[in-house]
């Protein structure tokens, strides 16, 4: 982000960076930066908090009028309490899933279990679609969720499987398909009232679902690959750092 600021401002257009990692902005010294003490992924603070988002945006915009850079300011406030703390306690997924630790000797059973999970979540996914007025976060591929399960499991069984996402290599198509599946699970899990945190959903996904097991399995396979790009993808594409606690070492 700091690099983009240098390139765009260097071409004559004033910029201001909203920074979530203060050290990066300190080092890269864009002309103007506003550090915000928010979660990664939330540059304007909190969802459905228009007044707070507006404060952040306006503070950043006002910095455009200054020319005494490089400037790094600190936004003074944390996001408003959205009631997350109360909602986290006792939150459970709307449906009870089979959970991880499958019998690895029977791949057909695992595939069946994954497809059962997908089916169990379907009404909750549909419910979330209604509450989100049709907005859906999956759709990175045109594959059905069952098709994604087949594709990802085919990779688990045979790493020479061909990409089935047009125009994408195997590593990227696996990632896009996996993200589609994860979006589906997360959106379904968000059907219950109350805001779920990323970590809470992650603990459910990686700790309690077969799909989470599958992500960890793909990570392991990729990390043990001789292919350099696949090793990198294994390290970065499937299990967030905060969820490595679910990976059996």
């Amino acid at each position: 982000m700091g690099g983009l600021a240098h390139y765009i401002e260097g071409a004559g257009i004033p910029t201001v960076v909203i920074s979530l990692i203060r050290r990066h902005t300190e080092v890269m010294k864009p002309p103007r930066g506003l550090f915000v003490p928010f979660e990664l992924g939330r540059p304007f603070g909190a969802a459905n908090e228009p007044n707070f988002q507006r404060r952040v945006l306006l503070d950043a915009l006002k910095m455009l009028e200054r020319t005494d850079g490089p400037i790094l300011e600190d936004f003074p406030d944390t996001p408003p309490d959205t009631g997350i703390a109360e909602d986290i306690t006792g939150w459970t997924c709307p449906v009870t899933l089979n959970g991880p630790n499958p019998d690895l000797s029977d791949m057909a059973k695992i595939i069946l279990g994954l497809k059962q999970e997908v089916a169990l979540l379907a009404p909750w996914y549909d419910e979330t679609l209604k509450t989100m007025k049709g907005r859906r976060l999956d759709g990175l591929t045109t594959l059905s969720k069952e098709g994604i399960v087949d594709f990802l499991m085919a990779f688990v069984e045979d790493q020479s499987v061909a990409s089935i996402v047009e125009g994408e290599n195997l590593i990227r198509s696996l990632k896009l398909a996996a993200d589609d599946l994860r979006h589906y699970y997360y959106q379904a899990a968000m059907a219950k009232p109350g805001i779920k945190s990323d970590v809470e959903l992650g603990d459910w996904f990686y700790g309690e679902t077969l799909a989470g097991w599958l992500f960890i399995k793909i990570r392991d396979i990729m990390l043990n690959s001789d292919d350099k790009d696949m090793k990198v993808a294994g390290r970065t594409n499937y299990v967030p750092n905060a969820m490595l606690k679910h990976v059996v070492q």
């Binding site: 939330r42 540059p43 304007f44 909190a46 228009p50 805001i195 594409n237 967030p240």
Partner: peptide, 17 residues
């Protein structure tokens, strides 16, 4: 590509991003 940032906020409100 990154897995290391929150997406639940974006799920709820695109204006957050």
């Amino acid at each position: 590509v990154s897995t290391n940032f929150d997406r639940t906020g974006f799920y709820q409100d695109v204006n957050l991003v």
